[in-house]
Amino acid sequence: SRQKRRLIEAVKAGRIEFRDINLEPDALSSHGASLEDIRRRLHATDAEGGLLVGADVAIAVWLATPGEGWLASLFGNRLVLPLTRLAYDRFADLLYG
């Protein structure tokens, strides 16, 4: 799909880097995130080293992926963001369960 190609492009350009928690289970322990936390919700660090969790990770990925910024604007604006986070958390709970 076009979204997948854009994400791959962002990874190749170095705007996004994925880490395998199975290979690096302590990758975010300095942020207080346990392996179980990471399995329940997406976790990431931003360019400044700050921790992002859940829907905020998806929004950051959309912002870093060419052509996907509109998704970040739609779901990450201050009015919709609380609902985006709630929906993400419910969905993540279902997947984890």
Score class of each variant (00 low, 15 high):
residue 87 A to W: 01
residue 84 T to V: 04
residue 64 A to K: 15
residue 9 E to Q: 13
residue 48 E to A: 14
residue 39 R to F: 01
residue 9 E to N: 10
residue 58 A to F: 06
residue 6 R to Q: 11
residue 26 D to F: 00
residue 24 E to F: 04
residue 5 R to C: 07
residue 32 G to Q: 02
residue 13 A to I: 10
residue 4 K to N: 12
residue 66 P to T: 08
residue 31 H to Q: 03
residue 12 K to L: 09
residue 77 N to S: 11
residue 21 I to L: 04
residue 77 N to T: 14
residue 62 W to I: 10
residue 70 W to L: 09
residue 34 S to I: 03
residue 41 R to W: 01
residue 43 H to V: 02
residue 84 T to R: 15
residue 78 R to T: 14
residue 65 T to R: 10
residue 68 E to R: 13
residue 2 R to Q: 13
residue 75 F to W: 15
residue 43 H to M: 02
residue 38 I to N: 02
residue 27 A to M: 05
residue 27 A to Q: 05
residue 5 R to G: 12
residue 43 H to G: 02
residue 13 A to C: 08
residue 90 R to N: 09
residue 50 G to S: 15
residue 87 A to N: 14
residue 25 P to G: 05
residue 88 Y to R: 08
residue 50 G to C: 07
residue 82 P to D: 06
residue 71 L to S: 09
residue 14 G to V: 13
residue 42 L to K: 07
residue 3 Q to H: 11
residue 69 G to W: 12
residue 77 N to R: 15
residue 45 T to W: 04
residue 66 P to D: 10
residue 31 H to A: 00
residue 96 Y to W: 10
residue 90 R to Q: 13
residue 30 S to Q: 09
residue 11 V to M: 11
residue 73 S to F: 03
residue 96 Y to H: 12
residue 26 D to V: 03
residue 78 R to P: 08
residue 3 Q to E: 10
residue 46 D to K: 10
residue 68 E to G: 08
residue 50 G to T: 13
residue 94 L to R: 15
residue 54 G to A: 09
residue 7 L to S: 07
residue 37 D to T: 05
residue 21 I to K: 02
residue 62 W to K: 13
residue 14 G to M: 12
residue 56 D to R: 15
residue 58 A to N: 13
residue 17 E to N: 10
residue 51 L to G: 02
residue 69 G to C: 15
residue 10 A to K: 11
residue 27 A to R: 09
residue 28 L to K: 04
residue 51 L to S: 07
residue 92 A to M: 09
residue 57 V to W: 00
residue 91 F to M: 14
residue 56 D to Q: 12
residue 51 L to N: 04
residue 37 D to F: 00
